[in-house]
Amino acid sequence: MIDFDKCGGLVPVIAQDAVSGEVLMLAYMNAEAFRHTVETGKATYFSRSRNRLWMKGESSGHEQEVEEIFVDCDGDTLLIKVRQRGGAACHTGHVSCFHQRLTEDGGWATVGHRVFDPKEVYGS
């Protein structure tokens, strides 16, 4: 059902808060990350920059408990509804990775607020 071959072994994954409906982040999974997610009930992704699996929250403790998983009609994108633990999905400390909004003058405005200080969680 999931076409991992279509995009070179990875599929984009949209993580959405299961309660509020807010889009939290976009990441990628390969088949192994998908299996691990299903087996553990915790969102596990494939890091393209580190070239390895990573369970969301492995360093911050801000895990994502998976409530539901959906696949799109083409079989090449996943939507996972999660319960975000620790209050923030973004490594910047914001609830959502999508916390920059384009303004009318073409600039960017930060929306939302920081839940944690990344220096305290990840170090310098």
Rank of each mutant, 00 (worst) to 15 (best):
M1D: 10
I2Y: 00
D3H: 05
D3C: 05
F4V: 13
F4A: 01
D5W: 02
D5S: 15
D5I: 03
K6R: 10
C7K: 06
C7F: 14
G8M: 13
A15W: 14
A15L: 05
D17S: 11
V19K: 06
G21Y: 14
V23D: 05
L26P: 01
L26M: 08
A27E: 02
Y28N: 15
M29D: 04
N30D: 09
N30H: 11
A31W: 00
R35N: 10
V38S: 10
T40D: 11
G41K: 10
G41Q: 12
G41T: 09
F46A: 01
F46Y: 12
R52G: 12
R52T: 08
L53A: 03
L53Q: 10
M55Q: 11
M55E: 12
M55N: 10
S59Q: 08
S60C: 15
S60I: 06
G61R: 11
V66M: 06
E67I: 12
E67C: 13
E68C: 10
E68S: 08
I69E: 01
F70H: 13
F70I: 05
V71R: 08
V71N: 05
D72E: 06
D74Y: 00
D74H: 03
D76T: 05
T77S: 13
L78S: 05
L78P: 00
L79F: 11
L79Y: 11
I80D: 00
K81N: 13
V82S: 08
R83C: 02
R83F: 14
R83S: 15
Q84W: 01
Q84T: 09
R85K: 14
A89H: 05
A89I: 05
A89K: 01
A89F: 07
C90N: 09
C90D: 04
H91Q: 09
T92V: 09
F98V: 08
F98W: 15
F98Y: 14
F98Q: 07
F98S: 03
H99N: 04
R101M: 09
R101K: 13
R101V: 08
L102E: 14
L102N: 07
E104Y: 06
G106L: 06
A109E: 13
A109L: 07
V111F: 02
G112P: 00
G112T: 04
R114F: 02
R114Q: 15
V115D: 13
P118W: 03
K119E: 15
K119S: 11
Y122Q: 12
Y122A: 12
S124M: 10
